[in-house]
């Protein structure tokens, strides 16, 4: 991979190199299991400035992750590059590469992409028609489905951001880190001893704020189906 970067740059390639994490197929164990593993590998070998992630939805679910999780892990490491737009079948344990029709997942994908400021690559339909869909017309139906699914995902993700309720919740959830001891933790300007003294002075903390899982899921449905 180092030689590929060296050669690519020498012939004028200025784009990104991508790794496409995949946990299995053809092997039982693979070095690029998921985004976190691949990012660690790239950092270990000094390749993280030239490489980003190409996240495939079906590979995410094969690794027992959601598509959104893999996108977020890539984005927070500054390595969200490109997307292989497809979906797997939760009842089958292999890489079925189906055309994406799940608007819920596409919305959460586009939410991550918008929050990350976009991709350096694009949305590649690494997707194939099902075996019984064998005509030329089916090839077009498949792309119309995939493109409409991601268009809906984009529209709904933008509405989710404009709605603001989810972002407001996240802000409030972590508000204790905005000042006082929380701010010192964020800035790295405290010590284990100071934190221990702080805890001992308090004697016992209050429970942290509610996770509001069901409220947030209702907000998502509300935006999706309004």
């Amino acid at each position: 991979m180092k030689m590929a970067v060296e050669y690519g740059r020498s012939i004028g390639f200025t784009g990104d190199f991508y790794i496409e994490p995949k946990p299995k197929e053809p092997m039982k164990h693979q070095y690029d299991f998921d985004a976190a593993t691949a990012i660690g590998f790239l950092k270990q070998y000094g390749l993280d400035k030239d490489f980003k992630m190409n996240i495939e939805a079906n590979h995410a679910t094969l690794a027992q992750h959601t598509f959104q999780h893999e996108l977020r892990i890539s984005a927070i490491n500054g390595m969200l590059g490109s997307v292989d737009a497809n979906q797997g079948d939760p009842l089958l344990g292999w890489d079925t590469d189906e055309f994406p029709c799940n608007v819920y997942d596409a919305t959460l994908c586009m939410y991550e992409v918008l929050k990350a400021g976009g991709l350096t690559g694009g949305f590649n339909f690494d997707s194939k028609n099902r075996r019984p869909s064998y005509t030329y017309e089916d090839m077009f139906h498949a792309f119309i489905l995939g493109m409409d699914t991601f268009a809906l995902g984009l529209v709904k993700a933008a509405e989710l951001i404009e709605d603001g309720r989810i972002d407001d919740f996240v802000k409030e959830r972590y508000a204790s880190y905005n000042d006082g001891i929380g701010k010192k933790i964020r800035e790295g300007s405290t010590s284990l001893k100071e934190l221990s003294d702080y805890a001992c002075d308090m004697k016992a903390p209050e429970l942290p704020g509610s996770g509001r899982q069901e409220y947030l899921e209702e907000v998502l449905n509300n935006v999706l189906f309004k």
Binding site: A85, M110, V113, L114, G118, L119, G121, G122, F123, N124, F125, D126, S127, F143, I144, G146, M147, D148, F150, A151, L152, L154, V155, A158, I161
Partner: peptide, 25 residues
Amino acid sequence: AFKYYDAKKEIMGKTMEEHLSFAMA
């Protein structure tokens, strides 16, 4: 026909086509 993909429609300052650089495998 597309029911939702409107290439030139603007969303958050960019067109759908700019947000969604679709590719054929």
